[in-house]
Design a protein around this nucleic acid. Structure first.
Lengths: 134, 134
DNA sequence: CCGGACTTAAACACTTTTCGTTAACTTTTA
DNA sequence: TAAAAGTTAACGAAAAGTGTTTAAGTCCGG
């Protein structure tokens, strides 16, 4: 059994960064160039992003397609749409209006511009009322 | 920007499996051997495990070390130890006694045998009272 | 005990990732 | 603005991961 996605080098850099060290300081400590520290940190972040996306996929496997929010929809209308669709299939959404919008904003930030949805958003829901946006 | 950890092949197999197909049926559909379906599914599960472990690492970066539960401790004494340590640093743990034990069992199953902790368990905590066991 | 479902190991060709260098570039901050 | 911090691009070598085959397993219900 292997560890997670991150290499020793990547974890090392992330830990030093968390302590507030600059890339140059870390480069000195681990004896390499600051450019290399930058790329190691970057690939670490990329790996973390991929880990998150992998689990998102897993969730959509468990969930069923609920509806699709068309691009151009007012953000504040989204909860009503989702509550309505969930009611049709007898599932209680585990978010209220505000937290639903926050959940959406967090998971699909680039799809939310100001008060408007600027990309089609596919909505999945589990039996437990958990939502996933793709 | 690339996708998550899973390859097309791996997602394909997981989706078919979710539908309840056997490895042989999937092998026929995607034109390969059932042994290969098995290894693809296995590496998919391994990737998912690694994705989870990667995020766990990320959480421990945000969290501070709270205490270490020594091997041999009675499971039912663990909550009291953790509540005590958390109180010392003025953090409210977001679990009650029962759910804390469940959380521990889920995250470190192999470290819990019957009523006893059989490995040292390092406990991390965030400002929000979330716990991580390593 | 037979058969179906599943697992495992070794070996292979192939692709991707990683760490590293150098050098130029942009952004932030004092 | 000047210095420090951070980013990017191009490239190479080494390491790791993937899909595949073949062949030999285990595990379990009927």
């Amino acid at each position: 059994m292997k560890d997670g996605l991150l290499t020793e080098r990547q974890m090392e850099v992330l830990r030093y960064r968390k302590q507030g060290l600059t890339q140059q300081q870390i480069a000195d400590i681990i004896s390499t160039s600051k450019a290399n520290v930058c790329t190691i940190e970057k690939s670490a972040m990329e790996n973390i992003r991929r880990a998150k996306e992998t689990l998102e996929f897993l969730y959509t496997l468990d969930a069923t397609h609920l509806c699709t929010i068309p691009s151009g929809t007012d953000l504040f209308n989204v909860p009503a749409i989702i509550f309505g669709e969930a009611e049709k299939i007898n599932v209680k959404v585990k978010y209220d209006t505000i937290s639903l919008i926050n959940r959406l904003r967090e998971s699909r930030a680039q799809a939310c511009k100001a008060r408007v949805v600027c990309e089609d958003i596919i909505v999945y829901i589990t039996d437990q009322g958990e939502l996933y946006f793709v």
